[in-house]
Design a protein around this nucleic acid. Structure first.
Lengths: 226, 226
DNA sequence: GGCCAGAGTAAACATGCGTTTACTCTGGTG
DNA sequence: CACCAGAGTAAACGCATGTTTACTCTGGCC
């Protein structure tokens, strides 16, 4: 583990320069980006990248650690603010110039799936469990019959909408411009707030029918069916 | 355009057999699946695939046309039923054995983005505009300040949650087993119905603040702010 | 029978990839 | 100075991919 001077544009060690280029390139093009491309971005040879990190996979591992460390460290100061809309914290990060490449990297991670994506989502769920419970206790958030399932649904809704915006963007370089994120997040905010405060269905028929049909709303320990 | 005997397991023309294998393999492994793998699945050589379709891209194009033709034809009879929860129609399809490979293919299409994904989503939006408007007119659905934005958000929420389930599934072959889709859809149904009928936030503060801050809720023609 | 069009293939080819090898250069130390 | 460890690289290697080439086989028609 190197001493990570987290975000700075000045002169970096070769290792840090390659890592930075890799995070940006992986975020822009996905993890199929070639070592030669990353090397060119960093101003070194492809052989250097392998010599420095050992392999492409090891480079990606270090990028993972770096990105998630930065987000984990910066989160507490950002996530607390708008406890209302889940996923708002990612939105806040994406509007900040220096964090934007990291957000792109995270979305690519989730898009490409696998263990890394899963563990990141588990972290989000765990965090959200905490502050949504706070919201419920404070009377700001409607309680749920299955808190974790609701949180997964809401996180999936937010990440999914961002993934869709990412996947359907024709210009791959748009992802690193603020304008793209403004557009994507603005399009989401109003409908999210509407659905979250006013709902979508006017009556409880479908929900009640489902609750009747499925007698097992899995509360934490023992359900209390019919 | 060949005469497409849409879904049948019997003896097919080589062309149809390769197409079927390609749809299944693309759906399971994504579009990076190699021609040789698809050829093996279809019981032919890789050269045959190229000779029959001209190129891998042409094969994918024909798979696109085929899958979306089948879905388009079958949709009317399925989409009309549960006008309540958006995306429920995909859920219905995914539970039917013979349609499941097609759903996987659609999700892979959206995951990999590009023009095909975009145009498919536009079709979904256009359709949904119709039947959500019906729902609003019938008093079953809450009206929105920006109907299209809400539909995009809801479609993104549904597709996004399915994409997440797909991406975080460790076993890539799970996608073609009914159990996977049951699990994914069951996990989504309760929280979706909850949020859609009971909302998530207890008071209008955040929504009202947003409406005040952004004086341009783009209704179709002229907004009526304040 | 003779033969030929069409379907199918094995083997080669070109390309891009991650990685390895053998080398050059350079700056500090004895 | 001598030299040598470390950083960096160009060139080659092995491999998988999509595609092409030259071939074999087979079935129907005169």
């Amino acid at each position: 583990m190197r001493s990570q001077q987290l975000l700075s544009e000045g002169d970096l060690s070769t290792r840090a320069r390659i890592r930075q280029a890799a995070v940006a390139r992986f975020g822009r093009d996905g993890f199929d980006a070639s070592l030669r491309t990353i090397a060119r971005d960093a101003g070194v040879s492809a052989a250097s990248v392998v010599k420095t990190f050992g392999s492409k996979e090891a480079l990606r591992d270090e990028c993972d650690e770096y990105v998630f460390a930065v987000i984990r460290d910066g989160k507490r100061s950002v996530i607390a603010a708008p406890s209302g809309a889940p996923g708002a914290f990612i939105g806040q990060l994406a509007r900040m110039d220096e964090y934007r490449p990291l957000i792109a990297y995270v979305l690519r991670t989730i898009q490409s799936g696998g263990d890394t994506a899963r563990s990141f989502i588990e972290h989000m769920v765990e965090d959200a469990l905490g502050y949504v419970a706070d919201g419920v206790a404070a009377g700001m958030v409607v309680p749920s019959r299955d808190e974790e399932a609701r949180i997964r649904f809401l996180i999936g809704a937010t990440l999914g909408n961002l993934l869709l915006a990412l996947a359907t963007e024709p210009d791959p370089s748009a992802i690193e411009r603020a304008e793209f994120w403004d557009r994507a997040l603005n399009a989401l905010t109003l409908p999210a707030l509407e659905v979250y405060t006013e709902g979508f269905l006017t009556d409880r028929a479908m929900l009640d029918a489902y609750l009747l049909y499925v007698p097992d709303p899995p509360t934490d320990s023992s359900g209390v069916p019919a």
